[in-house]
């Protein structure tokens, strides 16, 4: 039938246009679709933080660059907001050189909104090159790896670092990453120093990291923009104020369109008989 041939020969730019409209229209019209229940791995991170006592220390690793901001920045915003609202001390590091300025800006933004004080409630220690050596070094002495914060203040003078010597003094480590660094944190901080670890990751990495959730090597996992939206919902943030939730309507409509296109493409492929021609060639 001609319609199948037409569908298979469709200029792919029409598909680009369809995806663009599926993403743009919900953002422009502020159209929001109902959100499903938060994913259990995201709830696990939320519950773990809820169970911590005020004053305990959570270390955040900003291991992502601007290219993965759309997925990871909303996650980090929501989690840091939760930590500071819960009166936990936040100590952040960065093993990705471009992540250090993103982390610094995020902490000062959320800290400013919540009235948290830099050096008392949170501190950004900044970037150190070396990856696994930095992770291992902090297991022996955080002060030896980071004698000063990112802005040059000696960490010995900062109230937020009082009593924080090694991973033994850190209740949870959360790595926001778009590369292989979660594996290094699991290997060198988790296995070697028994540090409890959660991860906020891009969706591309999710299938690689789920086995570590199942084995208990991660206490929880925040997966992509959906994870950010789930976390925002758990915090009770208004959808209009939540970057993750605002993006999820576009995400859902684009996914629906892709599913329809995949099904239509397969039906067209078999109905047009091209699979038989391909089999003979």
């Amino acid at each position: 039938m001609r319609i199948w041939g037409w569908l298979l020969d469709l200029d792919r730019r029409w598909i680009f246009l369809g995806i663009a409209l599926a993403v743009v229209i919900p953002i422009v019209t502020k159209y929001t679709l109902p959100q499903g229940k938060p994913a259990p791995p995201t709830v696990a991170v939320y519950n773990y933080i809820e169970a911590l006592k005020p004053g305990e220390v959570v270390m955040i690793a900003f291991d992502y660059s601007p290219s993965s901001m759309p997925e990871l920045h909303p996650q980090a915003l929501a989690v840091v907001r939760h930590l500071l609202q819960h009166k936990l001390r936040v100590v952040s590091v960065s093993l990705n050189i471009q992540g250090t300025s993103l982390g610094r800006d995020l902490l000062s933004q959320v800290g400013g909104e919540l009235g948290a004080v830099d050096g008392v409630d949170y501190v950004h220690l900044g970037f150190k090159p070396g990856g696994s050596q930095v992770i291992l070094g902090m297991g022996e002495s955080i002060a030896q790896v980071y004698p000063t914060a990112a802005d040059g203040r000696p960490i010995a003078d900062l109230p937020v670092m009082e009593g924080v010597k090694t991973y033994d003094d850190v209740s949870l480590l959360i790595d926001f990453a778009a590369g292989n660094l979660p594996f290094a944190w699991i290997a060198f901080a988790g296995e070697r120093y028994n540090q409890k670890i959660a991860a906020g990751i891009t969706a591309v990495m999710a299938t690689d990291l789920y086995p570590y959730l199942q084995s208990g090597q991660l206490v929880g996992l925040i997966n992509g923009l959906k994870g950010a939206a789930d976390y925002e919902a758990l915090l009770g943030i208004e959808p209009s104020e939540a970057p993750g939730m605002l993006g999820m309507s576009s995400q859902s409509i684009a996914h629906l369109l892709i599913v329809v296109l995949v099904i239509a493409g397969n039906i067209a492929y078999f109905a047009s008989g091209r699979h038989r021609r391909r089999g003979r060639s």
């Binding site: 995806i19 663009a20 993403v23 743009v24 953002i27 422009v28 290219s67 993965s68 901001m69 759309p70 997925e71 891009t202 969706a203 591309v204 990495m205 999710a206 299938t207 997966n223 992509g224 923009l225 959906k226 970057p243 605002l246 993006g247 576009s250 995400q251 684009a254 996914h255 892709i258």
Partner: peptide, 26 residues
Amino acid sequence: VAFGASFGNTVMARVSLLIGRVQFLY
């Protein structure tokens, strides 16, 4: 099944990047 899950997550990640750009532009 694993490849399908991986592909689905990759689609989600790529659409998220487009959403981030569109949110910035708008």
